[in-house]
């Protein structure tokens, strides 16, 4: 009876990983005001262009699970090119800590710009709930020597959580 009750009580919580926002940047034509010059070449998004939240929710305890279950997690990041020039470099960094919930919560790593590649790389890690972690993107090495068109890629975040 106790086991059944406990089983009912302990199920229902699930890890949530919310990533909101995207970035579509159009280089303004007046970026070059003097013939003979190239683009300035480096462009950054808003510091909170992307927001990531990691938390337990669901079941009868809802968000309170984060105060009763100890868990840690790590976030990896990569890019999946759709139509992208390999000479255009993408950098990513975490510009803040967001808000932590639950005993022993922390977040670390990812504060400095790191270049995205087409392979997963460690981005940041932490424990317990972490809400609204701001993420900034930066584009580098853009030149008029590249075809004038719209380029697109997908930024993929993978979270692995251990309870």
């Amino acid at each position: 009876m106790i086991f059944v009750l406990a089983n009912q009580l302990l199920t229902g919580q699930q890890l949530n990983f919310d990533v909101t926002g995207n970035w579509n940047y159009i280089i303004p034509a007046n970026d070059i005001i003097e013939a003979g010059n190239d683009f300035s070449g480096t462009y950054a998004s808003a510091a909170n262009q992307i927001s990531a939240s990691i938390y337990l929710n669901g079941g009868w305890l809802g968000f309170w699970w984060n105060y009763f279950i100890n868990y840690s997690w790590q976030v990896e990041v990569t890019k999946l090119d759709i139509d992208w020039d390999p000479n255009i470099l993408i950098y990513i960094r975490r510009t803040g800590n967001g808000a932590g919930y639950g005993g022993g919560n922390y977040i670390s790593g990812g504060n400095s710009y790191m270049q995205l590649t087409n392979a997963n790389q460690q981005f940041f890690q932490g424990a317990q709930a972490r809400m609204n972690v701001p993420v900034q993107l930066q584009l580098r090495d853009i030149s008029v020597t590249m075809p004038a068109k719209t380029y697109s890629t997908t930024i993929v975040y993978t979270i692995t959580s251990t309870f």
Binding site: Q14, V19, N24, S152, T158
Partner: peptide, 18 residues
């Protein structure tokens, strides 16, 4: 227990004609 979740967003860049 281990959970793996994947999320993604788009990134677009438009280079204008100059």
């Amino acid at each position: 227990s281990q959970t793996v979740l994947i999320r993604e967003h788009s990134l677009g860049l438009t280079i204008p004609e100059i």
